[in-house]
Amino acid sequence: MTRVPAAVTAAVGLVGGYSVARVTKKRPLGGVALGVAGVVAARQWAGKVGSGKAAALTGLYLAGFAGSHPLAKKVGAWPSVLGVTGVVAGASWAVERTAAKG
């Protein structure tokens, strides 16, 4: 069985959370999607890179979510969501890759 990388889980959470909120017009549902994926990603990170780095990546995930709101006022909603998703997923990939090398 192939495991989904935490970077993908985090990306799905950020893009999926926004998408759910936008499509349903119910922001709390988007928050649920964002939160569930965030918890799953945090658990994945903790198992792969340890609790300290997992906390940092979880903080980045939350900062990406929060930061996408003011950024959206400058560049638009989708560019903002995709931009912060790229940063979070890229950081996750880099940290996981470094940890895997030992």
Rank of each mutant, 00 (worst) to 15 (best):
T24L: 05
A77C: 01
G30F: 00
A66R: 03
V23W: 10
K73Q: 04
V39K: 04
V20Y: 01
V39L: 15
Y18R: 04
A99E: 14
H69M: 12
V84S: 08
Y18D: 01
V88T: 09
A89N: 11
A77H: 07
G59V: 02
P79V: 08
Q44C: 06
G64N: 01
V81D: 00
S51G: 07
A91F: 06
W78L: 14
A91P: 08
S51N: 05
A72L: 02
A99G: 13
P79Q: 07
V12F: 09
L62S: 03
K25R: 13
G16W: 00
G90S: 04
G38Q: 06
Y18H: 12
G38V: 10
G102V: 01
S68E: 10
G86S: 10
Q44L: 11
R97C: 04
G13A: 14
K26L: 14
V81I: 15
Y61W: 07
T85S: 02
A99D: 12
A41E: 12
V36W: 01
W93H: 14
P5T: 01
G16V: 02
V36K: 02
R97N: 10
V8L: 12
S80I: 00
G30V: 00
A46P: 09
A41T: 15
A10R: 06
A6W: 12
A94T: 10
F65R: 00
V84C: 07
K26E: 12
G38H: 06
A54Q: 05
A42S: 14
K25E: 13
P70K: 08
A54S: 11
L29A: 10
L34C: 04
V4K: 02
A99H: 11
V40T: 14
G38K: 05
T58Q: 08
A89Q: 11
G31C: 08
K73N: 03
A10C: 06
W93M: 12
A7C: 12
L14K: 04
A11C: 06
A100C: 05
H69C: 00
A7E: 15
R97Q: 11
L71T: 11
R43L: 15
